[in-house]
């Protein structure tokens, strides 16, 4: 550095260095803020949930009671409903999403790929409250009048699984909520699957076609195994959304704090319980029970989403190689 700088220039350079450091520090603190936010949410929920866990202990998770007046609370019906509706949603959403992803990557004429892909993604953009009112006004009556009586008279008669379809067809209930959820998560899973299918090296695909494989065989034996981790990641992403979905479920689940074997029975989920009861929870224990439900939901979705993210990350790293 043989150049001697004038004092004003040196001062300007120093000032810029300071601004550089300040800018970097600002962005870093905001980034750390994201971590603090997540921590804050967990702490707030846990703190709110503490009283009810202190009173009922782990029994809170298995109890089926829900009596706000006698202050006896149990999370099991809500947890069961959350898991059951999400399971049904997966059973409906995964095959449909797979079909759509295969269509968009293998079967669709290239010109139609963008428009149809966009349309499917618009399904994801529709707010969940719209799914909810559509479910209440259109799907539930339809199911009550056609599909549910058919299920009761056919599958309901069979020995073991008949219990799943017993009871009067009410239109509202666990099954309807699961169907609506399935429609809701379908676009998310489909778009992840589509992105993940696109990472398959063309050479792999083409060599399979080259030895005479059919499209279905290429998907089953080449694409899916290659993208296995990403597909599971996408499925779990969809599962994470289904578990936490509130509005679509609240309209059609029937609001019953009960666990019944029949899928046609009304039930409740954690988020539906929160949406319905939070503003009127009288008493600290009641509010605490609701916070506890929120905490349980947060833990469940956090685990599922974290696992999904890890899987998708692994696939991205593999594709980058």
């Amino acid at each position: 550095m043989g150049v001697s700088l004038s004092v004003p220039t040196r001062r300007r350079i120093d000032r810029q260095r300071l601004l550089d450091a300040a800018f970097r520090a600002t962005t870093q603190s905001f980034a750390l803020g994201v971590l603090v936010l997540l921590g804050g949410i967990m702490v707030a929920l846990a703190a709110g949930a503490l009283p009810v866990f202190r009173k009922f202990g782990w029994g809170f998770l298995t109890s089926e009671a829900w009596n706000p007046v006698k202050e006896n609370f149990g999370a099991w019906p809500a947890i069961y409903g959350t898991l059951m509706t999400s399971l049904i949603a997966m059973l409906i959403g995964i095959p449909l999403a797979l079909g759509i992803a295969v269509f968009l990557t293998e079967l669709c004429p290239p010109i139609m790929r963008r428009p149809i892909g966009t349309l499917i993604e618009l399904l994801a953009a529709i707010p969940s409250i719209i799914y909810g009112i559509w479910g209440l006004f259109v799907l539930a009556p339809f199911l009550q009048l056609t599909v549910q009586p058919a299920l009761v008279s056919t599958l309901g008669e069979l020995p073991i699984i008949g219990a799943l379809f017993a009871g009067p067809p009410l239109g509202l209930g666990v099954l309807t909520a699961g169907v609506i959820l399935g429609f809701m998560v379908l676009p998310f899973i489909a778009s992840v699957m589509r992105d993940v299918f696109a990472t398959v090296p063309p050479m792999l695909r083409e060599s399979a076609y080259g030895v005479g494989a059919t499209t279905a065989e290429v998907v089953r034996h080449i694409v899916l195994p290659y993208t296995r981790v990403g597909v599971i990641g996408g499925i779990m992403l969809g599962l994470g959304r289904a578990l936490g979905e509130t509005m679509a479920v609240t309209f059609v689940i029937g609001n019953a704090h009960r666990v019944k074997t029949s899928l046609l029975a009304p039930g409740t989920t954690i988020s539906a319980t929160l949406a319905n009861e939070f503003t009127e929870a009288v008493g600290d224990l009641y509010t605490s029970a609701l916070f506890a439900l929120g905490f349980i939901l947060f833990v469940i979705t956090f685990i599922v989403l974290a696992a999904a993210k890890l899987m998708l990350l692994r696939l991205e790293q593999r594709a980058a190689k």
Binding site: N67, L170, P266, N276
Partner: peptide, 8 residues
């Protein structure tokens, strides 16, 4: 109350 049956 804890309703024995029905929809809410």
């Amino acid at each position: 109350i804890e309703w024995p049956t029905g929809i809410g």
